[in-house]
Amino acid sequence: MRRFDIEIAVGLFVLAGILCLAYLSVKLGKMEMIRGGGYQIEAIFSNSGGLKNGASVVISGVEVGRVKSIGLDTDYQAEVVMVLPQNIKIQEDAIASIKTKGLIGEKYVEITPGASDIVLKAGDRIRDTQPAVDLEQLISSFVFGKL
């Protein structure tokens, strides 16, 4: 009976620990337990402004997806690949723009939906993009009166 009690206690301890680990990795670490069938779309920006992998993709302020990879294409422009869930349809005239949370916050991609009937398929490219705003340039042009 005594051994049995120890085993129950250890079992409870291990369960509690694993629960905490799961909380840390799924809730905070964003580990993807189920590979939801998302699809990828691309966008070319003239300036990615320090966008990072895993940055959020937002429509009307609602986080819908994540940036999967950022690379340089053959024209030396930033090629950003985003993963969106299947149920979110993006029109082919949607606008993708890189924005900043607050003044010094991190960068994210905002997609403004379009009105077209044609919907982007996996691997398609958003044509209309707005690069990240270079805050320093903005401030300097403001300071030196070019605005």
């Binding site: 291990v14 509690a16 620990g17 694993i18 905490c20 680990l21 909380y23 840390l24």
Partner: peptide, 13 residues
Amino acid sequence: MISMPLLTAIFDV
């Protein structure tokens, strides 16, 4: 090896 990661996870949470 089994206890420490679990204890650490509990500590973190």
